[in-house]
Design a protein around this nucleic acid. Sequence first.
DNA 1: ATGACGATCCCAGATCGA
Length: 271
Amino acid sequence: MSRSDSFTIATWNINSVRLRRGLVESFLTTHAPDVLCLQETKCLNDQFPAKAFAKLGYEHVALNGQKAYHGVATLSRIPFATVDRRDFCRMGDSRHVETTVDVAGTRLRIHNFYVPAGGDEPHPAINPKFAHKLQFLDEMRQITTDTGEHDAALLVGDLNVAPLENDVWSHRQLLRVVSHTPVETETLEDMRTGAGWLDLMRLRVPPSEKLFTWWSYRARDWAASNRGRRLDHIWGSDALEGALADMSVLTEARGWEKPSDHVPVVARFAL
DNA sequence: ATGACGATCCCAGATCGA
């Protein structure tokens, strides 16, 4: 590809891709990212509506699905150079798919993650789901930004942790709520910095401002109460900081008909 | 916020999400 190409990536926890195929189609048509990373697809690979997305130009798809739970998928208009999937915690869950694409002479590695939610009780000794989440985050330390000289890397997805005080509607009230407990936020931030990742969303929106990507289905009026959390993330290797041209959270998507409880996050780079 | 919602699956109440 030529020098100085624009590259756009989006990440979206879709909460069933079959139920919300129309929303994905509408998003792809309107926002036209080069790559879309989906989480919680909740279907087997042969049930994934790949043909519908191929019709819109997304001919390349890397799937890691399972029945009813979890599942990730990466859709692309650009051919994948490589595709890989990793198992974490030896659980056999479908929570990661890794692809590479070549853009403007750069090989871009894209990790798409769905980190375990962690259950209700934030104590690993009494809640195996929370222990699994912490172990998963610990194993993610091996996903580093180490790439070749002309390469760059992205790590995106639903990480199920809101690390900063303004990543939740009330820091004080959520300190003992799973997704914002100190052990989670510290583990996530230590893992992120240790592996060399930059929190690209927070390079654009200062930590002093509230920033959410998820709002509970249980609120009577999600927009009025605005009790959100930033659970979805776009991380990048050093080379991508200077290349970041635009970053947006598509808050309006939470108000669409039969919405996901998460909204898309979009980043554009001038590579 | 210990959930009023929503999705899934051997179709109906349990389980999961966060």
